[in-house]
Design a protein around this nucleic acid. Structure first.
Lengths: 143, 143
DNA sequence: TTGACAAATGCAACTATGTTGCATTATTAT
DNA sequence: ATAATAATGCAACATAGTTGCATTTGTCAA
């Protein structure tokens, strides 16, 4: 099944509405398949003469986060980034200068992180352990 | 040698001045030995009736970063955090709710991350690879 | 197809965090 | 004590995100 349709079905089953803006944002996330910021969503829509208010964009992001359709990332700068949630667990390699992003993944690393999370659960008072691992560097153009 | 004195010496050797504000900020970093935000520094100073302007605080942070005396971290929220640079490589376990922070470390994990960084260097166009790994959870009080 | 109802949106005003240019002050070496 | 310049303060601005409330839109049942 098409990803966007399965997301639409999920929203419908909860009783949420499929508005034009919501569909556009969801599809933008799917097509980009990369971290995007609120600003990039705004620009994308604005170029296509679709005037969704910034408040609406932020509220859609909050909404999609709550439903676990997207995840939030935090890179070096101040902006929050978001990406569509897919089953593959990956991390990012982000250019410190231009923010260009690539996905990276390593099974061995995942295993080690999972061990670490178990150790933390056992050795601290914290619950619901999650992690964020990102790599930074300078891409070819910015070197 | 005392940490703060060695930092003072470093600054002096560069020809930078040891102002009251700079010394207070450096010592706050040393004493806290934890990530702190610009706001926390301001509050700390303000409580002691020391009125350093926020511009000055931000400029000191920039300055200390450039000299590698502190490092910048980015957790889930919008604020940037900073901590004194020490030789021990560690990560953080941050409460998603109250931002309470603990240090965590694992030799096995470091090895795996280093391998990953080497792989990235070999397999991408990126140079100067660094990483950021943070764990999140809910601390005892916030569960 | 049309209402009714809740979900979603737009708008204005606001908050928090951080930045810039420039005039003034403080620290340091001599 | 003074000159040189590093550091500071201030006002104004920039950016990212938030809130309350009135209005509009999408959905479902009739």
């Amino acid at each position: 099944m098409n990803i966007s349709v399965s997301i639409y079905d999920k929203l419908k089953s909860y009783g949420f509405k499929l508005t034009r803006g919501r569909k556009l944002i969801i599809n933008f996330f799917i097509d980009r398949n990369q971290p995007v910021s609120a600003m990039e969503i705004m620009d994308f829509l604005h170029k296509r003469k679709i005037n969704l208010h910034k408040t609406t964009i932020y509220r859609q992001l909050e909404f999609l986060l709550e439903l676990n359709i997207i995840r939030q990332l935090q890179f070096a700068d101040r902006k929050k980034m978001y990406e569509i949630r897919t089953s593959d667990h990956h991390h990012h390699l982000v250019c410190k200068n231009c923010q260009k992003t690539e996905k990276v993944a390593s099974a061995a690393l995942e295993t080690e992180i999972q061990t670490m999370e178990k150790d933390i659960l056992a050795g601290s008072d914290f619950k619901n352990i999650r992690h964020s691992l990102e790599f930074f560097g300078l891409c070819r153009q910015c070197q």
